[in-house]
């Protein structure tokens, strides 16, 4: 009697399955456009495609400004991801390990950069840096990115530390290890996958970030700023597409690796949704 309706609930319906796959196509179609046109032998980015060429990649690699921008972005990304992950780790550890009064207020404040429009953050930072007399440079971009990346890092690490077995740390302390040694020999190896995942994801956020960099830039450009200037001059489109395709592929590889680590870290099974 009840077997039949039970079956009905889990029943696979074709309509929604097809919709889900169409949605996936909508999501990925634009991401296929970049690589396709980066190999197209034409200056105008439009269908039909006339022929195959690797010329745009050669042209892109030959540009010294591109190399400079790439190196700048890597520097900013490394500084931002290391700093943000350190701040994120401290906060995540505090939140998951201790009962703290006012925890939700602090968590709300730390998560705030995710929810306020970037233009607001950019403008506010620009004003305060000016008031403080700080010269804009790659460092100011990195500082802005630290603010943006810290909540991401905290979310990734909280998800991992939430299922953390406290008794492992307590056993280490009982056996006479100091708090610091316990952290290095017990806690750190256990949370390592989540830390690496946080470093990768925050690096990607910083590496791809445009608007804060746009506001806080000094004389030097990061890669998204370089791409932005490339997008505004149609003659620069094809090499920019080549660059964009490479960035896209690298980003996807890093994200899949980071997600895989995050999953491996949480012991598989349940997907924890970070953001």
């Amino acid at each position: 009697m009840s077997a039949q309706p039970l079956k009905k609930i889990g029943e696979r319906s074709w309509g929604i399955t097809i919709f889900a796959f169409l949605y996936l196509a909508f999501l990925y179609a634009p991401m296929l456009v970049l690589p396709v046109f980066s190999f197209a032998d034409q200056k105008v980015i439009d269908f039909p495609i006339k022929g195959f060429t690797t010329h745009w990649y050669e042209e892109m690699f030959a540009k010294p400004e591109m190399h400079k921008a790439l190196w700048n972005s890597i520097q900013v990304g490394v500084i931002a991801s290391l700093t943000a992950t350190l701040f994120g780790l401290l906060a995540a550890k505090a939140i998951t390990r201790y009962a703290i009064p006012g925890k939700s207020i602090a968590m709300g404040l730390i998560s705030l950069p995710l929810f306020i429009p970037e233009i607001l953050l950019g403008l506010a930072l620009l004003i305060i840096l000016n008031v403080a007399g700080v010269t804009l440079s790659l460092l100011t971009i990195a500082a802005g990115h630290v603010l943006l990346c810290t909540p991401f890092s905290m979310a990734v690490l909280v998800a991992r530390l939430d299922g953390f077995d406290k008794s492992l740390e307590e056993a280490s302390l009982d056996l006479g290890e100091s708090g610091w040694m316990t952290f290095w020999r017990v806690t750190f190896p256990l949370i390592m996958p989540a830390v690496v995942s946080s470093l990768l994801l925050t690096f990607i956020v910083s590496f791809d970030e445009f608007l804060l960099a746009f506001f806080l830039q000094g004389t030097e450009q990061t890669l998204p700023l370089y791409i932005w200037s490339g997008l505004r001059f149609p003659s620069n489109f094809p090499p920019t597409l080549a660059l964009g395709s490479i960035i896209l592929v690298v980003s996807i590889v890093l994200v899949v690796f980071a997600e895989w680590l995050r999953q491996a870290g949480t012991g598989g099974g349940k997907m924890k949704v970070g953001v």
Binding site: F87, L90, I95, Y98, L109, P113, A124, I127, I128, V146
Partner: peptide, 20 residues
């Protein structure tokens, strides 16, 4: 343990918004 990150956000986020 929580204070460094909280201070970062107060200095880097709350203060700039107030000045704005």
């Amino acid at each position: 343990l929580l204070s460094p990150t909280t201070i970062l956000m107060v200095v880097g986020l709350a203060a700039p918004l107030v000045i704005m």
